[in-house]
Each structure stands twice: as structure tokens, then as C-alpha cells.
């Protein structure tokens, strides 16, 4: 199929940036979206135009690096996928596709479609861990049984890939889904209990410092999350936060 692409080009963080329009031809429906972008880039290089910069790495939906806003949706029109798993069969011959970076104050553009998501790392630094050093003589892994339901729910929260689609989608650029997924994982496990109050307080504090907006319960983040992280996690984080405020 033949497509028209409107791609955001921005030289660096200081540059104003603008859309450029390109045509690509003979795109196979079996290609992934990023393979289509590869075709575009090879074509641009042949024309002497610098290729479009975008983040990508594993190309199997787990590293969380790819981050395109496609036709107004994070990771494009398909559900439960990252951009690298989006396939061109979801588009039609003759379509015009608009491709933008994540837009959020806390995610400044690095170049073209690539943004700086180090704010997420700093939120994890604020408390997204269990304080245990490497030790050769810890209690046996089976010493504390964990109810299967809780273990499974902790796992579901822990599958967040930190891509930032929730922030890009939210009209307030809130990071509540990301932060609550990590808070929930530990809140559901016995290992996370000891530091639970400090963790939620510190992570929420860092989230606010980074300039993310507030949650107004629109639920858009849950819809666009490629891993299906539930907004129940946000409710759980609010409970944890309240609990921590009362006991403080």
C-alpha cells in the first residue's frame, strides 16, 4: 500500500519543531510499523535527508523503548500493543498517518520522535524497590508462602514496561498509572510491607516534583496501556497514600 506520513521533526530540545510530509510506497501489510519507518529512513538517506530519529530496541513489545503517538493515539490504533508490535494491516492504502512524539512537560523532546523519560527512573529511585542488599544467606524462597491471587495481582502490576503511554495519553499528563503499578506490586507482597508507607509517600512526592499532572479519573491511560495495567492500581495507591498519611 501507499501512504502519506506527517512526521514531527525537531532537531533538538531547543528547536521549535514542525511536521514534514513524506510519501512511502509498496508497504506490505505484514510489516510492523517500525519496519515501515525503516523503509522511510532508507528512502530519506538515499535522498540525502537525515533519517527520522525514534526510540526502539527489542521490537517485541517488552523493553518499553518505542514511543510514538500515531494518529492521536499512543502506540497507534491497535489495543494491547506497543508501536513495534503494531502492524501495517491496521491501516489502509492511501491513508495519511500523523506521527508525533509523546507530549508532556516531564518528557522533553530529545530529537524528532524521541523523548527524555528519565523522570520515571527518578521516581523509581525515590522508593520503587525493596531495601535488600545482595546476600548469600537470605531466608529460603519458599519460607513465606504468598496467596496465589496476591502473587498473580502483583505480577500483573509488575508487567508495566515504563513506556510512558499513560502519560502521553492523559489530558493532564499524569503518571499515576505508572507509579501506582509499582506501588501496587510491592503493596501486594509481604516483602514490600516494611517500607510501604515511606515508599508511597516518596514516590508520589517525586512524581509531583517532576511536573506530572493529577489524575482526574478519565481512564484513558488504562485503555491505551499496551500491557493492560488496570486503574484499580491507582485506587490502591490512593488507599496506600491515605494510610501512610494517617500513620505518619
Amino acid at each position: 500500500m501507499n501512504l502519506t506520513l506527517k512526521v514531527w521533526r525537531q532537531k533538538n530540545a531547543q528547536d521549535q519543531g514542525s511536521f514534514a510530509t513524506y510519501q512511502v510506497r509498496d508497504i506490505s501489510p505484514d510489516m510492523s510499523f517500525l519496519e515501515m519507518m525503516d523503509v522511510l529512513n532508507e528512502q530519506l538517506i538515499a535522498q540525502g535527508v537525515e533519517s527520522v530519529v525514534f526510540d526502539h530496541d527489542c521490537r517485541e513489545g517488552i523493553c518499553g523503548m518505542c514511543s510514538m503517538f500515531i494518529n492521536g493515539e499512543a502506540h497507534g490504533p491497535d489495543r494491547g500493543v506497543t508501536t513495534c508490535q503494531l502492524h501495517m494491516r491496521k491501516f489502509n492504502d492511501g491513508d495519511t498517518i500523523t506521527i508525533e512524539p509523546w507530549r508532556a512537560q516531564a518528557f522533553p523532546v530529545v530529537r524528532d520522535l524521541m523523548v527524555d523519560r528519565s523522570a520515571f527512573d527518578r521516581i523509581i529511585q525515590a522508593g520503587g524497590y525493596v531495601s535488600v542488599n545482595t546476600m548469600g544467606n537470605l531466608p529460603d524462597a519458599n519460607a513465606t508462602p504468598i496467596e496465589k491471587h496476591d502473587a498473580d495481582a502483583a505480577f500483573d502490576a509488575a508487567t508495566c514496561i515504563g513506556c510512558g503511554a499513560c502519560v502521553a495519553t492523559c489530558k493532564n499528563a499524569s503518571a499515576m498509572l505508572f507509579v501506582s503499578a509499582k506501588v501496587s506490586q510491592f503493596a501486594l507482597l509481604p516483602q514490600g510491607q516494611v517500607e510501604a508507607a515511606d515508599r508511597v509517600r516518596n514516590m508520589v512526592h517525586q512524581m509531583d516534583l517532576e511536573g506530572f499532572g493529577n489524575c482526574t479519573n478519565t481512564g484513558a491511560c488504562e485503555v491505551e496501556c499496551p500491557k493492560g495495567i488496570s486503574i484499580e492500581n491507582i485506587a490502591r495507591m490512593n488507599r496506600e497514600y491515605l494510610k501512610a498519611s494517617i500513620t505518619a
Binding site: 525493596v130 529460603d140 502473587a151
Partner: peptide
Amino acid sequence: DQCVAQGVP
């Protein structure tokens, strides 16, 4: 043992 202590589900 180490991973379980870290909260790996």
C-alpha cells in the same frame, strides 16, 4: 532467594 526477597513475583 535473592529475587524473592526483592519482590520479584
